[in-house]
Design a protein around this nucleic acid. Sequence first.
RNA 1: UCCUCGAUAGCUCAAUGGGCAGAGCAACCGGCUGUUAACCGGUAGGUUACAGGUUCGAGUCCUGUUCGAGGAGCCA
Length: 458
Amino acid sequence: MNVVPIRELARHVGETVTLRGWLYNRTAKGKLVFLQVRDGSGICQCVVFKPNVSDAVFQAADKLPQESSLIVTGTVRADARAPGVPGGYELDVASLEVIQRAEEYPIGPKEHGVEFLMDHRHLWIRSSRQWAVLRVRATVMRAIREWLDAHGFIEVTTPILTPSAAEGTTTLFKVDYFDDTAYLAQTGQLYNEAGIFAFGKVYCFGPTFRAERSKTRRHLTEFWMVEPEIAFCGLDELLEIEEQFVTHIVQTCLRQNAEELKLLGRDTSRLERVVPPFPRLTYDEAIQTLQHIQAQLQAGQIVRRADGQPLQDIPDPSLLDITWGMDFGSPHETALTQLYDRPVFVTGFPTAVKAFYMQPYPDRPEVCKSADLLAPEGYGEIIGGSERISDAALLEQRLREHGLPLEPYAWYLDLRRYGSVPHSGFGLGVERTVAWICGIEHVREASPFPRLLNRIYP
RNA sequence: UCCUCGAUAGCUCAAUGGGCAGAGCAACCGGCUGUUAACCGGUAGGUUACAGGUUCGAGUCCUGUUCGAGGAGCCA
């Protein structure tokens, strides 16, 4: 039995091969039955022609329900008419064995609603679009480790059960920890900062948890984040690392997932433009730009990008209200990113709206050495990063200003007492990155089993 | 937490101003040698989310509840 993955069928034209998989769709046409068979690597059309097979095989093929498991053997031939992934090749069936006749399958080839699909997420991941997205996700995760490992970073795992908030503001999931309370980690950053003093460059990569009551296309309560941290690194160097890193991820997906991106209908020319340098905008400039865009919109003018193209998603001008000192909302991010053809850095946010550990500019302490990287096409912030405060006294002062207790941060303050150095790091959200690369509407489809507000099944 | 919208067949949706509950897909039966979400003919499929109210009469109007979707805030 010459079992071949569908992805490699092109190399076996003329040979007799066996496919093992599941029936994705079936079209019967008299003496011809077209079976679209998935095997996990792709989808292949298997043609059952009545005169070529036994009556038993033809009967089995003719009545086979969707998602039945089967083993099918036949001759590979090239045919431009053959649909599938990658398509263009089909199997002229000689024999077929049904492993299990599936019960009536709930997910049909027509459209379904979000709630129904999410209730059937365990089955939905078999559908070709979901399959493609999750394969891109696997590439993104592989590319992340590839790049970091190749650039001298050490993966140091950080705890998921943690004793307290890193940034007092965000809501955490509380769990019983014997007779005490613990929280699910929302970041590994503080532990990474300990790691760099041992290893120089480290990263953690795993799930993080936010108990925010957010219900938008950009939010999950459990999502994956990679957080690199680098000793002897300032903000400018950090931005160069980030743009190289993101470029590697995007370009790897373009190389390795061309088939998946095609299936998703992604305009890959927009991803091909993702190469360094990414535009850098200060917060001050961004505020001016946003106020200018709002004024243009309110005057009924068309807002144009640098290349002369008008903005595609026209935001409601009233949502663009912003004055110096305010953090960006998502309408601001959407408006800003539309001006550029690649991700854009915004640096130097007001110290007051950012986390306590971010290094203020010495000559201008009201802004800090922070940088967000905003993805194009409305996918929002995919990276948040900063240079960290390296001076113990200043860090302690900032903790006090944020009303945070010093005791839980004693070990963190210690790091500034034994060989403190300037250092920087960032966190990249995997699902937002995947959603952007795939061009999908909602981050929930970028996770195999997404956890959302009001959604923890299946 | 707030704003907007929604819930009718397994799924996606329709049902004029309150007047017989309907279609496509899926399922089942039949037809067809190139289908691409095939097509053609047929069968079956309903406590209109739940509770109450108005009315001769409610899927439709009113009140409440539950669940869902999109967005805001917050964030990656």
